[in-house]
Design a protein around this nucleic acid. Structure first.
Lengths: 117, 117
DNA sequence: TCCATATTTCCATAATCCTTGAATTATAGA
DNA sequence: TCTATAATTCAAGGATTATGGAAATATGGA
């Protein structure tokens, strides 16, 4: 992931509705969710939803595919993983020696998922 | 890190100059860097730099401390790590079973740092 | 073909963000 | 105290972003 893409991804995630869209699609899984269903779930108008979905699509964090009359949106896990990696490298990669313990935890330990399990 | 803080952090990182400030401070390490030095390095005016530093400070991604006439800014590694964790949990935690291989790499594998070493 | 559904695009408005220059505050030294 | 340095704050502008309603596009079924 290059800087331009990262900037675009951060911008996409910096808006409450869009962050909730991403969360919703991550939870929805590979099956995804229709635009209207997301709009209803989050309580925003169709045109506003369309605006935000387009923004997320342009940033690459989600994808879309038409299915009959609906357009199904799905989270792009690769892009999310790429963004995490970008952030991780900016945090530690160039200078692991200056990482504080907390930063080191994020960079070198088992993930929170494993800790919770 | 709660959602409000995450939104604020994403907004802070979604602006080119601010992202470069964070990068610069991460590289600078715990010693930090004076506002003027960052401004000169990045080629922006003092007031613009001040505006962005304040924004980053409000989001918690950087900290400041006066040293004689200068104000020294430092990256907040804990906050960066917290943001990485927030993103990681949104990506995988609630539903590790739907992680694609690429996402799983970001969530469960050794960090890129270790791979590069 | 006609109608209903699902979504997007267009438009106008309101809000927020970014930048700059001028004025202000804080510190240090002569 | 006076001057220089280092930053911030303020005010004004131009640019971008967010929202919702109305109109347009695409699909499927009677």
């Amino acid at each position: 992931m290059d800087e331009r893409q990262a900037l675009s991804s951060f911008a996409a995630l910096s808006q409450e509705t869009r962050l909730q869209i991403v969360r919703t699609l991550v939870v929805a899984g590979p099956e995804g969710m229709a635009a209207g269903a997301i709009a209803e779930k989050l309580g925003v108008s169709p045109s506003t939803m369309s605006f935000h979905l387009k923004e997320l699509d342009r940033s690459g964090l989600i994808g879309q595919q038409r299915e009959s009359r609906s357009i199904i949106y799905t989270a792009n896990y690769d892009a999310l993983a790429g963004l995490i990696r970008f952030l991780t490298e900016d945090c530690c990669a160039g200078n692991p020696h200056i990482c504080t313990p907390a930063a080191a935890v994020a960079c070198h330990s088992p993930s929170p998922v494993e800790k919770k399990a």
